[in-house]
Design a protein around this nucleic acid. Structure first.
Lengths: 334, 334
DNA sequence: AATCCGATTGGAAACGTTTCCACCCCAAGA
DNA sequence: TCTTGGGGTGGAAACGTTTCCAATCGGATT
């Protein structure tokens, strides 16, 4: 930690050649074999390795991509981050994690910070969106890929999924099991996912007929909030099926159901959404609608690679379909 | 995305003053109120914001800190990352996530990459360690904080915990419940945590007397590996208590126990380690030894802040004590 | 009125890299 | 032998910022 890092100029002096030749020799283009040999040796002796900042300044490229979400601890985002990292790292890109905060305003601020040019692009999954944010994304100086709503009409690259359709699949699954009194446990309606899932439930219960439907909104998408909201829901009348807007809410709901002395899935069948590992290892294992977090993360990262390579490339859209994974919490196998 | 970002020089020209004054005016030191006003206006009109790379080059400071672990998906590391981010972000530092890979060799490589100077420091939690790695850390050009083993003797900053002692607490807890046939479910012994926890179990069962002890090593620290290893362990003979080396293994073990028709905690009491959210929401909720992941992350980040501020600052060590959290899986309250 | 001092200001260098451009040299063709 | 061309090399500029240093400008003190 005492010795200072070697610079390219020092390597050049040691090799007794010019700075230009040294750079070429190391970067591998247009240098004679003798030169390459000579410079390599000098570089090795000094333990040289190129300074990322100097290179970035000259190249106007940071080899960094930001990944921004409201809550880094959320299992869904963790999965995405892992996938993004796995795709980007082999291409020499680093991943910078950032927090959007949970308002559209704070997210807008974050997007604006791209102006300081510390990354080559940003993958963001906004919890809440408004027109200001959309505009800011459109004007961003580097490519931005949105994971969430499809935004093709606004010329923004996005990776979307049909969570409304996913809720529909869950509703039909429960109906096909003979359940006729279904409850819906949603998260905040002013969030992008909350709004979409609400649309999904409304649409599904319009075409599929139940004897009774009811719903309740949790304070946020967590187990605790799910537990409390489910208690309120169950207190209002008997249900035999419950659709939760994500796995954490579903787990809270399972606890609430059991508190009342009822069993899952015997008395109440429950579905989650996101297909998290948590839901998979839970007992009972959770029937859940996979929204392909890993796949969405990968898709976003691949779009980013293309855009980072060619910033003038047209915006790209990818849609990942939802997929129902039937497990114990609705009486499925395993 | 078409318009190019404004540079400081452009702001200077627009304000009709020198580059130097412009910089001072914006940075707030030694400029007249009139100058500040004038430059601010010009900057606002152009939507100027300072280029991070240019500034980094001059300041020799990136305002970035790396966080490197073997598996970013592991709940423990997620918690640490969240804590680290929460501490560093308010101070203007960005967090870059990196993967150590799971060998000491690949971790060494990662530490060596610090030579390219893309980051002001690194917080790393190596899964496996050897002398080469220790050396590399000592020679790193920027501060490195290790989360894991205490390394005070080597002059390295570290945040450690007593996981061996934590296992001891779990063992004594089970003994105090009257359990006398205890099994130990560990992860790979050649990992730093695996080795420490093994020492803990050996030491504890030497001082606390059981009728029967047995142990088994899982392929890694996951639910699936835990399930398989626990099956082997249970097949060898009846147990009434099981200490797992982390929460994921414990959850695999619960499943294995139930497969044999036995109950948790009635027939077999089970403890985990790490006190993850997963264990808390699981049913039965998991008695677990907290190693203070959040606290360790925070401590590491705080050390990093000090070291980044003053690179010649002496290495710092912090130890976080383990804490047993009794829950349903050993018959505790809640 | 001359001097001095502090507060402001501008010029220029520096951080470390890549690459354009001009130059040189040698081999090949005329 | 003279020209042409191409491969290899070095000089120098550029990326955007901060800060050292010298210079200037007031106003206040003698």
């Amino acid at each position: 930690m005492t010795s200072t890092r070697a610079t390219l100029l020092q390597v050049a002096e040691r090799a007794g050649v010019s700075l230009a030749s040294t750079s070429r020799a190391l970067h591998g283009t247009g240098a004679s074999p003798a030169m390459v040999e000579r410079v390599r040796a000098a570089a090795a002796e000094l333990g040289y390795s190129a300074d990322a900042i100097g290179r970035s300044l000259r190249l106007k490229k940071t080899f960094q991509v930001a990944f921004a979400v409201a809550d880094i601890g959320n299992p869904v985002y963790v999965e995405m981050m892992r996938a993004i990292h796995e795709v980007l790292a082999p291409h020499g890109y680093r991943v910078v994690v950032m927090s959007t905060g949970d308002t559209a305003r704070s997210t807008t601020e974050l997007v604006r910070s791209l102006n300081s040019g510390f990354v080559d692009g940003m993958i963001v999954s906004p919890l809440r969106t408004d027109d200001r944010l959309i505009e800011e994304i459109q004007q961003a100086p580097v490519p931005v890929v949105v994971i969430g709503r499809a935004l093709d009409d606004r010329g923004i690259s996005s990776v979307s999924t049909d969570s409304a359709g996913g809720i529909g699949a869950a509703v039909r699954h429960l109906h096909s099991l003979g359940r006729r009194r279904v409850g819906f446990l949603n998260g905040p309606l002013d969030t992008t996912p909350g709004a979409a899932r609400q649309r999904g439930f409304d649409a599904a219960t319009e075409t599929t007929v139940f004897d009774r439907t009811d719903q309740e909104v949790a304070a946020d998408f967590t187990v605790t909030a799910g537990l409390e909201a489910a208690r309120r829901l169950l207190a209002r009348g008997r249900l035999d099926a419950l659709v939760a807007a994500n796995d954490l809410l579903a787990i809270g709901a399972i606890r609430a159901v059991r508190e009342t002395g009822l069993s899952v899935p015997g008395d109440v069948a429950i579905t989650g959404m996101d297909d998290t590992e948590l839901g998979q290892v839970f007992q009972p294992s959770l029937t859940s609608v996979s929204l392909g977090s890993t796949e969405r993360g990968r898709a976003a990262a691949r779009i980013m690679l293309r855009l980072a390579d060619d910033p003038d490339h047209a915006a790209q859209q990818v849609a990942v379909g939802p997929e129902l994974r039937v497990r114990e919490s609705t009486g499925g196998a395993q």
